[in-house]
Design a protein around this nucleic acid. Structure first.
Lengths: 332, 332
DNA sequence: TGTTTCTACGAAAACGTTTCCGTAAAAAAA
DNA sequence: TTTTTTTACGGAAACGTTTTCGTAGAAACA
């Protein structure tokens, strides 16, 4: 089957390549009659322009890249949904890269993207607190770049974030209103600004009400985390556990199962989470739920503004998270 | 900041473009001394080749496309993980497309990919039973193509599937062994071969044991599905519900909550599902769990074989699903 | 010494587009 | 009628690579 490119169309129609190209792009320089002929043949042969040739010539790719730590995670899945909805609408393609929380991978991906592969990059950084020179390099190259959720504080870049401190504060006050006196905040990845903000919201609420600060920093390792939580619950006997991440709450549920503790009777549990089945858990889990889809959509819209060269008014967009009260923190 | 391309390297080193290109690709035609010089400068200036120029010239892109119905779904999230793990290993890039179960979108994506954008395509089809001419077109163009999970029976293509019939049979027998006599199989998207196979496994087991066939076909609409399940449970009073899809089991859980039915006392529930939190539900849900990560990885490996032009021995790879027994089908 | 074979490199074509520039013929203006 | 403008198109350069082909000079061989 012979290849179908512009050259072929031109040959079959006895036209020049330039004329065919212009006809396809509906240029005013081409007469309606030839346009019609070109369109007709293109349709017949199912002509599709070679995107790499176009990208090379036009110096734009209609493609964006998404770099995230992981995908098997309700938050990021929903974010992808939001991103895709906007990208598809604009006819853009989306490349996806998973760092698995490894900065080296992030550095490598960024390097790969630094020479015209994409028109812009959306990113939720892995392991913050690490070196950010690769991100600075990217900015220097003037590649449109938008961060979401996990953003580097050190850089002045467009970002989409959750009201982490405030929602954490509200969540903590919810626990306090339920009568909890010993609330432990469980967190991970201490280098992440987002964890810090959540912890800060907790601390602010705790201090406002004169309660004791109880903070547990876990590691990345699942098993170690499980043991830490177990020891904490057994020895410190908190009456509420506020998890900064979904997987920490899951671990807490298992620990309670093992220790024979009743939720919410013995321990109230609350977590940042995007679990769709939160209300089906035993017991239904009270969550602080981020609008993940909206964050993805907002980030993408912002990125398109940058790509189009438009000035952006708000460099930081904050999207409110909702506290959804369920049985794991019920008061009776 | 001046652009850094091969031309720039050549100019600064007083070499020709071809020599630089060859040096970068470590050709034996270039002396070690010049190679060293070229590498050094490339490193200094952080040279990255323009991928579109390479793709255009080489007629290969080191990019694959993934077309799936949705991403906010545990199964597909894990599949993506599996795909990415293999792709990253080979230095390939992954484009992601979501059809949201709409065949029109699938057709459009396929059209967009039909002219050299990618080296191959991985796909789980949307709404089977629809027209498949767009897939036939793709095959005619000789674009490497591998299907997984939801595959079109009509086409002779490489595919990765679950042992849907067999695992469904085993699951149904598990319910029967628990003493269930009125087992209803709930399914959706009746045009999907995968649904058919699951239903067939159920029917085979039911008939083998001389029990009544009870089949409920739901629609895509969430609310309608909910009502159908509710009516079915109330009027037909099954003692077990076998859901072909995760979301149907979720709906069943809600229905039972509303009707005040006890799981597993009044109704045992079992479902195909990749929910990570299945064991934390109330009650823990017995699942038939596909090895989603492995399916993604296997599909990608298969695709790479096609891309390399290797003959593939097994055109259909079946990956076994596991029945994980939990409390929702407990016998006591 | 003369001939052949390597070695190491340069010129240029090619990949498939888009667009700048140029120009006949037709139309409009003078 | 002559001049100017417009219309509709063709030629060729350009995007940044890779690779084919060609060739000086060095090395090997006779």
């Amino acid at each position: 089957m012979e290849k179908v490119d512009i050259k072929r169309l031109a040959r079959e129609l006895n036209l020049s390549i330039s004329t065919v190209s212009r006809a396809l792009r509906d240029s005013h320089e081409i007469s309606d009659s030839t346009k019609k002929k070109v369109f007709e043949l293109a349709r017949q042969l199912n002509y599709q322009p070679n995107p790499h040739a176009s990208s090379l010539r036009e110096q734009r790719t209609k493609t964006i890249a998404l770099i995230i730590p992981e995908v098997a995670n309700n938050f990021f899945s929903l974010v992808i949904d939001g991103i895709e909805s906007i990208a598809a609408e604009k006819g853009f393609h989306v490349l996806i890269y998973l760092t698995h929380e490894k900065t080296e991978k992030e550095v490598e991906f960024v390097r790969q993207l630094s020479n015209g592969r994409v028109d812009g990059i959306l990113m939720s950084v892995s392991g913050l607190g690490q070196s950010i020179t690769h991100l600075e390099d990217l900015m220097q190259k003037n590649i449109p770049l938008v961060f979401f959720d996990r953003t580097p504080d050190e850089l002045d870049v467009p970002k989409i974030i959750t009201d982490d401190r405030d929602s954490s504060f509200r969540a903590t006050e919810h626990l306090i209103q339920c009568g909890c006196k010993k609330i432990v905040h469980v967190s991970i990845l201490r280098q992440m600004s987002i964890s810090d903000k959540r912890k800060q919201g907790y601390l602010d609420a705790i201090n406002k009400h004169g309660l004791p600060e109880m903070v547990l920093d876990c590691s990345i390792d699942e098993e170690e985390t499980y043991q830490l939580i177990k020891t904490c619950i057994r020895e410190q006997k908190p009456d509420a556990l506020f998890a900064s991440l979904e997987r920490l709450a899951i671990a807490a549920y298992y620990v309670c199962g093992e220790l024979g503790l009743n939720i919410p009777g013995d321990l109230k549990v609350l977590s940042f989470s995007n679990l769709q089945t939160a209300s089906l858990l035993n017991p239904p889990l009270t969550t602080v739920t981020q609008s993940a889809f909206d964050m993805g959509a907002a980030a993408t819209k912002q990125l398109f503004r940058l790509i189009k060269g438009q000035e952006i008014d708000e460099r930081t967009i904050t999207i409110r998270a909702d506290l959804i009260r369920r049985k794991s923190t019920s008061c009776d």
